[in-house]
Design a protein around this nucleic acid. Structure first.
Ligand SMILES: [Mn+2]
Ligand SMILES: [Mn+2]
Ligand SMILES: [Mn+2]
Ligand SMILES: [Mn+2]
Lengths: 150, 150
DNA sequence: CGGCAAGTGTAGCTTTGGCTACAAGATATA
DNA sequence: TATATCTTGTAGCCAAAGCTACACTTGCCG
């Protein structure tokens, strides 16, 4: 008899409903924090690099208008991650700094993992900007292990 | 003299502004298609599995209310990915089917890559649900190569 | 056949994250 | 100092994606 044909099949069985719902839910949750993570990481880098993080610079680096950036900085403040006095630039709170450190370290591990499996540099940097926000602690640990960083 | 201390440093130099803006922009773009990709993939799986894709089932599997699902199905229709007559279930257009195949294949490669570098199964499945949408064609090809699927 | 439960659809609200347009403060320079 | 330019802030608009509440179909079963 003929072998079962090599078709692009659906998964053998669908995951159980609650399992699948939880996976999608986690992805949604992760996504909702992504923007804040990127802002905080960028602000930390700007502060480290030049001593100041101005709304216009943040906006230009993110590729959005300054109005958008300022509104999001407002959210950062509301959530206790940043402080900013009018016309005086943006700074991170303690919570913000801690988040920035975590996010920056994760970013680097993700890029390195991508490079390690053969992804070209610019694709790695570009894709990592989105991927990083969906890398859980468990996965991050596995990446670090794979890279030989115990 | 003392070595440069091992601090959790910012990147040696910040990327050029337009480069960084383009990276963030790509991540935003990718994200905006993510929801549609998940719907289309899920609908294809449901159709393959049971012959029908009902709004309520879609909603339950995604972990959202049926109202939310129905509204997004509306967007799918607007974008020419699905068709649905009232009370008659959802089906994919040709474009929808093609997208579903691509997305499903990518999903599998991403999960397999994660497993291959040592991520535990459930984390791989869970994180892949978000990561997949940020994996570019170049990166996907690199993953396939790494997995030995030329 | 009648009625009830399940499924479907609609309306209206909220938050987020974009945008443009305009107003006002700060800074540099002539 | 006066003025022009850059920067910052605000207001108001939009679309997406979530929700609850309510209304209407369908389809099954007694
Ligand atoms: Mn990012
Ligand atoms: Mn990043
Ligand atoms: Mn997904
Ligand atoms: Mn998927």
């Amino acid at each position: 008899m003929a072998n079962s044909p090599p078709r692009a099949a659906a998964p053998a069985a669908l995951p159980a409903e609650p399992t699948q719902a939880s996976r999608f839910g986690k992805a949604r949750t992760a996504q909702s924090g992504a923007l804040l993570e990127d802002y905080v990481e960028l602000i930390a880098d700007l502060l480290a690099d030049g001593g100041e993080a101005r709304p216009t610079d943040i906006a230009r680096r993110l590729g959005v208008t300054h109005a958008t950036a300022i509104k999001t900085i407002g959210r950062l403040k509301r959530e206790g991650l940043a402080v900013a006095k009018p016309y005086r630039g943006v700074f991170l709170t303690e919570a913000g700094e801690k988040l920035a450190l975590r996010v920056r370290a994760r970013h680097r591990v993700v890029v390195d993992l991508l490079l390690a499996v053969g992804v070209p540099m610019e694709s790695a940097e570009s894709d990592a900007e989105g991927i990083e926000h969906h890398v859980s602690d468990v996965t991050l640990a596995a990446f670090a292990r794979f890279l030989g960083r115990t």
